[in-house]
Design a protein around this nucleic acid. Structure first.
Length: 307
RNA sequence: GGGCAGAUAGCUCAGUCGGUAGAGCAAAGGACUGAAAAUCCUUGUGUCGGCGGUUCGAUUCCGUCUCUGCCCA
């Protein structure tokens, strides 16, 4: 029987942070964030990052971990997260993973095939093919070598197509085959808890939180990022709450419209998260309807662990 | 008080030369293996404002009423 790891998932705004903090406090342990945006420095208000008090009180990993211009990927996340899980095990602490980035969670829980590194030269060449002949050319190539993954690819996802071809050209084996073969051997047992809210209530909370973000100075935060010289084309800034404010600052839309769009896009995001997590049958869903439910849940969860 | 224009899906509107209707947005469902807060796919039945009339048949034409907006008094 492996070492236990507690995982907290759920839609944005569902109280994951609160539950994680409570659990970490009760179990005297640390939090491993699985959030592809809170991982970046200077994205605070718009990502609903834990505040400085909370970060001082409980040690958080992968918060303020990257500069906004840094490229990152799930495979790196998996490796680095596993290292932290090891360290915590050594010091006899039960790790708590908290986050809404489904792919990151999956990478840690199930692993992600990592036999094929990236090859920037090859990528550049493939990108060149796209620029000259269009993405259809690459999709045709992929159809020939790996029809199974080609069938799932859409032309708009050219980065995914490049990745699939990259894997094939570097190894002579398709990404589909690699995925099927992939098996990871780690001695960890993940307990995944999902926070479930009535959809209408969740949406209402999302809307309130967006209003709060504006009151807390989201527009100023975005202006500061621009002043620091960060481009809005950065992946880190292709984020709900930031891209809409860029539009407002460029006078494309009004602030009112930007707020409305942030609310809608956050709802859409929450829905995508739920679709993702609902597919994972290992998740233990807990209905909650307020912060007290979350504290009660924390108490209940820790009863399963000897202190 | 008079005139004009509206009233159709949760919202904004289109349309039916009379055979009970369709777009965008919202919403819902889904996919996802090195961008993942990303990137995509699928889904449109609603007393066509109420009541009468004409008609085989009215959401569509006519009358009337109600409501909304604008204009004139």
């Amino acid at each position: 029987m492996g070492r236990k790891v507690i995982v907290v998932v759920g839609a944005t705004c569902s109280g994951k942070t609160a539950l994680g903090l409570k659990l970490a406090e009760l179990l005297n342990t640390e939090i491993i964030s699985a959030d592809s945006r809170q991982i970046y420095k200077y994205l605070n208000i718009g990502t609903a990052k834990p505040n400085t008090d909370e970060l001082d009180k409980i040690k958080h990993h992968f918060i303020d971990y990257l500069e906004p211009e840094e490229e990152y990927n799930v495979s790196r996340y998996e490796k680095e997260a596993l290292k932290i899980l090891d360290n915590l095990n050594v010091s006899n602490k039960i790790p708590i993973i908290v986050g809404g980035s489904g792919l990151y969670i999956r990478a840690v829980v199930d692993g992600i095939f990592d036999n094929v590194e990236t090859d920037e030269v090859l990528r550049a060449r493939l990108k060149n093919t796209i620029d000259t002949y269009g993405v259809g050319q690459l999709l045709e190539q992929l159809k020939l070598v790996d029809p199974e993954s080609a069938a799932k690819m859409l032309p708009q996802n050219w980065k995914r197509i490049i990745r699939a071809l990259e894997v094939f050209y570097l190894t002579g084996k398709t990404i589909t085959e690699w995925q099927k073969e992939y098996k990871r051997n780690i001695d960890l047992e993940f307990e995944i808890y999902g926070l479930s809210w009535n959809r209408d209530v969740l949406y209402k909370m999302i809307e309130n939180r967006v209003d709060d973000m504006i009151n807390m100075g989201l527009v100023e935060e975005v202006k500061k990022l621009l002043k620091k010289g960060y481009s809005k084309d950065l992946n880190s800034l292709n984020t709900v709450g930031y891209k809409e404010i860029f539009e407002y600052l460029d006078n494309v839309i009004s602030l009112e419209k930007a707020v409305e769009l942030i609310k809608r896009n956050t709802r859409h995001y929450a829905k995508r998260q739920l679709t993702w997590f609902n597919a994972d049958k290992r998740i233990k869903w807990v209905n909650v309807n307020g912060i007290n439910d979350i504290f009660r849940l924390a108490e209940k969860i820790i009863m399963n662990y000897e202190l």
